[in-house]
Design a protein around this nucleic acid. Sequence first.
DNA 1: TGTATCGTACGAAAAACATCGTACCTTTAG
DNA 2: CTAAAGGTACGATGTTTTTCGTACGATACA
Lengths: 129, 129
Amino acid sequence: MKSIQPENNLPEPTKAELEILQVLWEFGPSTVRFVNDKLNEQREVNYTSTLKQMQILAEKGILKRDESQMKHIYIPVEAEEKTKVQLLDRFVNTLYKGSASQLMMQLLGNEKTSKKEIEEIKRLLDRMD
Amino acid sequence: MKSIQPENNLPEPTKAELEILQVLWEFGPSTVRFVNDKLNEQREVNYTSTLKQMQILAEKGILKRDESQMKHIYIPVEAEEKTKVQLLDRFVNTLYKGSASQLMMQLLGNEKTSKKEIEEIKRLLDRMD
DNA sequence: TGTATCGTACGAAAAACATCGTACCTTTAG
DNA sequence: CTAAAGGTACGATGTTTTTCGTACGATACA
């Protein structure tokens, strides 16, 4: 049963695009210079590469930008949460046929998910009632 | 706190590769013909395309194959669980800075995660003690 | 005022992925 | 024996994503 709804969905961000989004989510609206510097804390990347990516992101409508200054300021169009929910949804559908509980099981079985995390999750569920 | 461990990790499968893996996971070791037929239940794809993908997968060491017959049989090297755990791990790290509980919250907040799913998850956690 | 610095624009090359056509070998049925 | 059916190999091509060089306009300041 496919519900009819406005195809609001923006195109799925690519890997490189996600890197940029994450900087913007963490630090808020930023210039290319700022984002590029942040990226370079993790890996080497040329300024113009980042610039181009952000321009593409803007073309796609994933970012909007304030051009009133010479140093353009880029801003994510969708909130962090919304985008992540979308990505998560896709992930669950692809790998777990949409079953969130199956994903959970994996998460809980993973040694890398610490006891503390598990406690946190339980508390969360309790609070949900 | 990053634990030191052998970097066992195989290269991340691409989208097309994942499709193939999923068929193999669901139906067990298979021929190219079989996999291709399954894929074609969902979308049109040429036999040789699938063949090529599976050959690449084998080159990468993600699949191994039994060549003793003319119809080669392809088998995933890693178990479904292990690969999924790896992908999930990467996903959590990338989008949620490794916080499983944060991911959970999103999952639980998502209307698409049904009440039944949530019940399932709770039962799961209870059983964990 | 001129030159170094910092910005954007944009085409093009490089790299990663995906698809397919063609060659050619085996098996099978008549 | 031979033709059709079905298999693998693999290069070529198409597409998308990523990276970068170069051109050129603004700004800053010696």
